[in-house]
Amino acid sequence: MSPLDTDVAIETPEHIVFHYRVAGPARRALGHVLDLALCYGAVVVLGVIVVLAALGGGIDSGEIGSAAKAGFGLVLLALFAAQWIYFVVWEAVFGRSPGKMAVGLRVVTTSGRPIGWRAAALRNLLRAADLLPVGYLVGVVSMALSSRFQRLGDLVAGTMVVVPENARPARALELSPPAEPRELRELPEHIALDADERAAIELFLRRRHSLGQAREHELAGMIARTLGDRLGYAHRDPSRLLALVYDRAVNAGRLEAPPSSWYPKAKADRSAGAGRP
């Protein structure tokens, strides 16, 4: 499994290496449109309320009251907040604005930590440069040129926008039906597969049930013959051969290995001797 070029590796203080997927322009644009709709929607609602209040007051007093003017001042303040404050506060406090939340994005520093006030302020101040000359053209060009899809604001603040992913646990692969002694008799005791081979066979075994039988055989046949020749092992069914080889390569010799991954007899000795770790 070689990481895609949209992956960024992060090492934490626990010496765990994460791979964050960096968000591309399309998804970020969608999130941004949602944010804009929310912000300017709120400003418009405020404006309508002020206008209605002014009209209501105007019928009584016959002129636009000074309170209404103050109301419009408030609308301008709201407009200012939408342009310069909204993103800073959301990103500094929650690491994401509501629009980003909706499309599943998060802003982190390039070292994978949550951003603070300074970074949030910088990346959103520089928005004024990114949206030039029209439609975030500068930002998109900057994203295309940088390795982490960073617009100018991200570059200056040292941040990036990532897509946090939550994988569900998958069941470990099991050999089913269990191997028959006849099948195991000729299987070599030690099988070494390199990482690519393992990954390829594993991917195939996980997906083979969703393929048609003919397609399954066709795909398995492409690699089973070469692999069988190398190991000096043959099986009628190429798909089954891959399953057996994988099971032995991965499980043989491990604690609590299933019987199928080892010689039935040798396994009996082993499990008696291994005990609990």
Binding site: A92, P164, A167, A170, A172, A195
Partner: peptide
């Protein structure tokens, strides 16, 4: 770390990565 060292399958490692990443976000969150 153990899963990576033992070369367990990609889905398991991915699951643990996702889990630790989510927890990391909370532990080191704002």
């Amino acid at each position: 770390a153990a899963a990576q060292a033992a070369r367990y399958s990609a889905p398991l490692v991915d699951y643990l990565l996702g889990l630790t990443a989510a927890a990391h976000t909370v532990m080191y969150g704002p």
